[in-house]
Simulated assay, not measured.
Amino acid sequence: MMKVVIVAILALATTLVSAYDPSPLQDFCVAINNTDSAVFVNGKFCKDPATVTANDFFFPGLNIPGNTAASKLGSSVNLVNVDKLPGLNTLGISLARLDFAPYGLNPPHIHPRGTELLVVMEGTLLVGFVTSNPNKLFTKVLNKGDVFVFPIGLIHFQFNIGQTNAVAFAGLSSQNPGLITIANAVFGSNPPINPDVLAKAFQLDKNVVDYLQKQF
């Protein structure tokens, strides 16, 4: 009986570990788009260590504000993940700069592979996340220097409630945390979700669903 329990625990642990970025077994594994490479780790090939340079661990430009005017929501996110910084491969971390125009919104979304730790650099943000069933909202107003954490996989948002621009930086516990924006995913999927499904799920008139799908 004890052996069965131990095997079950080990199987569960293996499942949990495999759900996150792998722990590195070497100093680094700089990502490279070269199928001739012999080593393939977490979706990326490893660059020959002999050809690695300091630039593989460098990304410039997070001092530059994002273009919030280009978004209908008045926000801009510059994510530095493994695709932009190859040296992040296997290190289980990434970084983002978030810019908000006055009353700009980073809409409800999830990161399926990463917990997010947010620090406000300028301005005032209303932030929050919603738990899995039962759906409880945890929300807080953040000012300059305040920090808030959004647990992995939970719906969360950031909203600039001030009359001036706001800036925040976020660390994420994955080299490629992923992003699913709830409204885009539900009303803007390709191909679209059957309107009858959405009308019943959201208890909306089908004409409203048609309107929302056209917005995305």
Rank of each mutant, 00 (worst) to 15 (best):
K3P: 06
L126Y: 14
L142A: 09
V52Q: 03
P191Y: 09
G92K: 03
V120E: 02
D196S: 13
D99F: 07
S75F: 01
N135A: 12
D99E: 04
K84N: 03
Y103K: 13
N78R: 02
T124L: 03
H109K: 02
A183M: 10
P192I: 09
T164M: 06
H111Q: 08
T68S: 06
I152M: 14
G188V: 09
G188N: 01
I32V: 15
I193T: 08
L10W: 08
F150G: 05
L95E: 00
K72C: 03
C46P: 07
L79N: 05
P112C: 00
V167D: 00
T15H: 15
S173H: 05
R113L: 11
F100S: 02
I155G: 00
N133Y: 07
A96T: 00
Q175L: 00
V130Y: 02
D210P: 05
L137D: 01
Q203F: 07
N190I: 08
G61D: 06
F59R: 14
D48V: 04
F28P: 02
L12S: 10
A168N: 09
I155V: 14
K140G: 03
A201S: 15
V82A: 03
P60I: 07
D205Y: 11
Y211F: 14
K72R: 12
L154I: 05
K200S: 14
L25Y: 07
V5G: 07
D21H: 08
S75P: 04
N63G: 14
Q175V: 00
S76L: 00
F157Q: 06
F58A: 13
F159R: 05
N194F: 10
F45R: 06
F40T: 05
S173F: 00
V208Y: 11
V130R: 04
L204F: 03
L117D: 04
L98F: 03
L126G: 02
K44Q: 14
H111M: 11
G178V: 06
P195F: 07
V77S: 01
Y103Q: 11
D56A: 12
H156V: 01
Q163M: 15
G92M: 09
S132W: 09
G114M: 00
N135R: 09
F157P: 05
F100P: 01
L95C: 08
G188Y: 03
L105A: 10
N55T: 15
R113M: 09
T51F: 10
I32W: 02
F138N: 11
K206N: 07
D48T: 10
A54M: 10
P112N: 02
V17A: 15
Q213M: 11
G43W: 12
L212E: 11
V7T: 12
D21Q: 02
D36P: 08
D99P: 03
K144M: 11
T181V: 14
